[in-house]
Design a protein around this nucleic acid. Structure first.
Lengths: 230, 230
DNA sequence: ATTATCTATAGATCTATAGATAATGC
DNA sequence: ATTATCTATAGATCTATAGATAATGC
């Protein structure tokens, strides 16, 4: 209706006119907060700093969120959920149409891609000490479920000697830790195909698979993901 | 001289009389800060909270440290240095008296033990976002050196297929990440022999070693460490 | 009328400095 | 005299609330 140099949005106009990012105010806050939390940490990031980056006043933040906590909760949960959803479907197909090693490789690839593509490397937030607090219980439960899946699939894929020496819970911890190498890699640069292959390879080898089995599992996973066509 | 219920220390006595921990005031501060930084993070920990835990007034902290930053710097550096020192000597002996795989296994074991024994799981501090700042450059350089050593030893120990697919820098990142699984394990409980074996095993396997080679490398590493007799 | 912002501000921090003080050491 | 603490406090935050205001929607 109006000429396109003004968005004609609801509510009192901002002092700083909004940079037409296409995001809703709520998402603008999430995005700004993510960048700042990742760079400076949660406690070191003030609501004022977030608001400033968005281009609103500090108090306006409270119209959208009850507080900083709520912002972090939302960032955390929206970052594990995608992996978790895909994974739930995946596990049911083992060992019918999919081998355990293939499913594990697929899980690792999904997780790597999720982490590699989050805006501002949000995965870093998992590492914040604040996330140990009660408020983030829900997120931690989701992440634990992901880790348990790593443990189950890893154990099923593992060779006898590994299975005998490493219980599922421990293997899960090791594998998820490996997958999250992506988070560290992103701190220094882009994540490329070589990185993805190295990490999936390390996961499969950690389960005891040899060179040939690694290749086979990777091939199976790629077919799986192509079929799922996310 | 005085009766043993009073330490008769120098300086004005504390309001809270000191719990005879044997630590110097400086070390008491470091210890209290470590516990709080690990639990709540750096920025969320006030100088007041540290002082309270020590049993001194907030301002007294500044007699020993110029600020919170200095405390963190000292905690970080004293936590990587030990691993680094041992490791420097180790690498020179490859491939003379020690195989690359044996040296890598030894490195992993040293690192695991260092991390498993730090008071309050100080390794957690590596993950704080604040540590990315300029003030902690020195620590990051030390840690990078450790990571580079992982990369070099890992590459030398690796089988041909792994060496062909994973450059040293990337392998170093993966291996150090694996070793630091200990940090996560300590968050939920004690680190035991099974954990140590699982992690060293995962590192060696990630380099492509098979079951027999893993056993051999581990044996070699244990002999090495027994000889070094730390 | 509803929405999304704004201004203003109270109250609670938090850091770092200035200067006093209560011990021991010489 | 030296040391290690103390008390007091300035100045700079920071969070969250109250209430006003400038748009659109009906």
């Amino acid at each position: 209706m109006s000429s396109d140099d003004r968005p004609a949005r609801l509510g009192r106009p901002r002092v700083v006119p909004d940079t037409a990012s296409g995001l809703s105010p709520r998402d603008q806050i999430l995005d700004a907060a993510a960048a700042l939390f990742v760079e400076n940490g949660f406690s070191a990031t003030s609501t004022r700093a977030i608001a400033e980056r968005v281009g609103i006043r500090q108090a306006s933040l409270y119209y959208h969120f009850a507080g900083k906590d709520e912002v972090l909760v939302e960032l955390l949960t929206t970052s594990v959920r995608p992996s978790l959803d895909v994974v739930r479907g995946l596990e049911e197909r083992v060992p019918g149409s999919v081998s355990a090693a293939g499913a594990l490789a697929a899980l690792v690839l999904i997780d790597i891609d999720t982490l590699a593509r989050t805006p501002h490397n949000i995965g870093t937030l998992y590492l914040l000490p604040e996330v140990q607090g009660d408020r983030y219980q829900g997120f931690r439960a989701d992440r634990q479920e992901l880790q348990d899946t790593y443990g189950r699939l890893g154990t099923r894929a593992a060779t006898e000697d590994v299975r005998g020496a490493v219980p599922p819970a421990l293997l899960g911890g090791i594998l998820i830790q490996l997958a999250e190498t992506v988070i560290q890699l992103r701190r220094t640069g882009e994540v490329d195909e070589q990185d993805r292959e190295a990490i999936t390879g390390a996961c499969l080898r950690a389960c005891g698979l040899g060179a040939a089995a690694v290749v086979a599992a990777r091939r199976e996973a790629e077919a799986l993901l192509a079929a799922a066509a996310v």
